[in-house]
């Protein structure tokens, strides 16, 4: 009786195993990379109704974040400015610029400008801006260097693990309260972020919540 299995089948189990291993490895590594907020969120850069340039307003004109985002120190929510805030200046400056037409339309009609949302926490996450900016966490820690962005994009992953990195070791991110909105701030020469941070953690009694109820209610 001839052999049922030809000779080449001797290698078949090994080949199958190797194939399966390669496929599994690529699926797992693919998911680990593509299915995380690091990939799904970071880099999101939608087109806004008005091409508002943060780098121009902050770096060239020297405006503070809080001129527009007025609620950030008082409320959980950091508000996007109303049309009126834009019109404070743009009735005088660039008052006829075609780029600003949606703003002028909004001002005329009373219909708000539909800014496209970039940073969004899930509904079951209760993030509070005021407690962060009043206790030494700068805007840059979560939003990146918005002052250098011509078009704003999602700079950090905003995943739960990423939040907890800082909540477990706040000293790596704290800075003096007068430097919160200075996104280019570096620890002064001679000190390190860690030294400063540890001092703030001690002096200000900083103990961020790391249990569920801190953010989920």
């Amino acid at each position: 009786m001839a052999n049922i299995f030809p000779r080449w089948t001797n290698w078949l189990p090994i080949k199958i195993l190797v194939c399966v291993a390669v496929v599994a490895a690529s699926v797992i590594s693919g998911m680990a990379y593509y299915f995380t907020p690091k990939y799904t969120r970071v880099g999101y850069q939608p087109t806004q109704p008005v091409a508002f340039d943060h780098s121009l307003h902050v770096n060239q004109l020297g405006m503070d974040c809080r001129y527009c985002h007025t609620g950030v120190e008082k409320s959980s929510h950091s508000n996007v400015p109303g049309t009126q805030t834009c019109m404070n200046c743009h009735t005088q400056i660039k008052s006829l610029s075609p780029k600003l037409a949606p703003i002028r339309d909004s001002w005329k009609t009373g219909q708000p400008v539909p800014w496209v949302r970039i940073h969004k926490a899930p509904d079951y996450v209760y993030f509070n801006h005021s407690v962060h900016v009043n206790r030494g966490v700068s805007c840059v820690a979560c939003h990146g260097q918005v002052n250098h962005m011509e078009v704003v994009y999602h700079a950090k992953p905003h995943s739960m693990g990423w939040c907890l990195e800082c909540h477990r070791a706040p000293q790596n991110h704290l800075r003096p309260l007068d430097q919160i909105t200075n996104l280019d701030w570096k620890p002064p020469a001679g000190t390190t972020q860690r030294e400063l941070g540890e001092k703030f953690v001690h002096d200000w009694n900083v103990n961020p919540p790391v249990s569920c109820s801190g953010c989920h209610r």
Binding site: S75, S76, H77, N79, P81, T83, G110, R117
Partner: peptide, 17 residues
């Protein structure tokens, strides 16, 4: 998703409070 601010913010209103 969209963020829709007021065109003219009413007095005392702090969004989220």
């Amino acid at each position: 998703a969209h963020l829709v601010p007021f065109t003219q913010t009413p007095e005392w209103v702090i969004s989220g409070k």
